[in-house]
Amino acid sequence: MATHKTRMAPTRPYEIVYIIDSALEDAAIAEKLEKHHGLLELAEPAEIEHWGRRQLAYKIGRHEAGYYAIAKVNAAPGTLPEFERALKLDENIVRYMVSLVERVLGAPKLSDEELAARAAHDDDDDEDDE
């Protein structure tokens, strides 16, 4: 019982996609993300990928464009409800999605040898076209 403060809660890898109001300044967006990530009590800082502003495939409310940011975090599941509540209350966050990273997505990064092999293969294809 007494150990619950000293022991770190087990964390799981999550990927969070944010669509933020594109009218916001970049600095304000970064600040906002940092503030929300504070609720997750992260041991290491979130790895954030900024896609920037892009057109939405359909209108969400009055928004036709949004600022996309993707954060990869290792968070304790218990911190999520409070975090998600804050996101829902934040008017500048148009939409968000938290998903558990169970597998590595997309194609694996190729080693140099594989890249060379692929490049050679592509060259062959080009010759065929001509």
């Binding site: 996609v17 993707i70 597998r103 590595v104 997505l105 997309g106 194609a107 694996p108 190729l110």
Partner: peptide, 11 residues
């Protein structure tokens, strides 16, 4: 053929 193990929803 594209070498994708698991389809990425962001792609």
């Amino acid at each position: 053929e594209a070498g994708i193990r698991f389809v990425d929803y962001k792609d």
